[in-house]
Amino acid sequence: MARPTPELINALRRTAQNLKNGASYQWGHMGGCNCGNLAQELTKLSKDQIHQYATQRHGDWNEQVDDYCPTSQMPLDLLINEMLNAGLMLEDLKHLERLDGREVLSRLPIEKRFLKHNVREDVIVYIHTWAAMLEEQLLEMITLPFIQKRELAQPF
Rank of each mutant, 00 (worst) to 15 (best):
R13M: 08
T15A: 09
L19W: 01
L19Y: 04
K20C: 01
N21I: 00
N21K: 09
G22Y: 03
S24H: 12
Y25L: 00
W27I: 02
H29M: 02
M30S: 09
C33R: 02
C33M: 03
N34Y: 03
N34S: 11
G36T: 05
N37R: 12
L38E: 00
Q40F: 00
E41I: 01
L42K: 02
T43G: 07
T43K: 02
K44F: 11
I50R: 00
H51V: 01
Q52A: 14
Y53S: 13
A54K: 07
A54S: 15
Q56V: 06
Q56I: 08
Q56M: 14
R57I: 10
H58W: 15
G59H: 06
D60I: 06
D60W: 00
D60L: 07
W61G: 11
W61R: 06
Q64N: 10
V65R: 05
V65T: 13
C69N: 15
S72W: 11
S72K: 08
S72D: 13
S72R: 12
Q73V: 08
M74A: 15
M74N: 10
P75I: 07
P75A: 11
L76K: 12
D77T: 11
L78Q: 15
I80A: 08
I80N: 07
E82W: 00
E82K: 15
M83E: 07
G87R: 03
L88I: 02
L88Q: 03
L90Y: 01
D92Y: 08
D92E: 12
H95S: 13
H95D: 15
H95M: 09
H95Y: 13
H95Q: 14
L96Y: 01
L99D: 04
L99I: 06
G101K: 06
R102G: 09
V104C: 14
V104H: 04
L105M: 12
S106E: 14
R107S: 10
L108S: 04
P109V: 11
I110M: 10
I110N: 12
K112L: 09
K116Q: 13
N118Y: 08
V119W: 07
V119I: 14
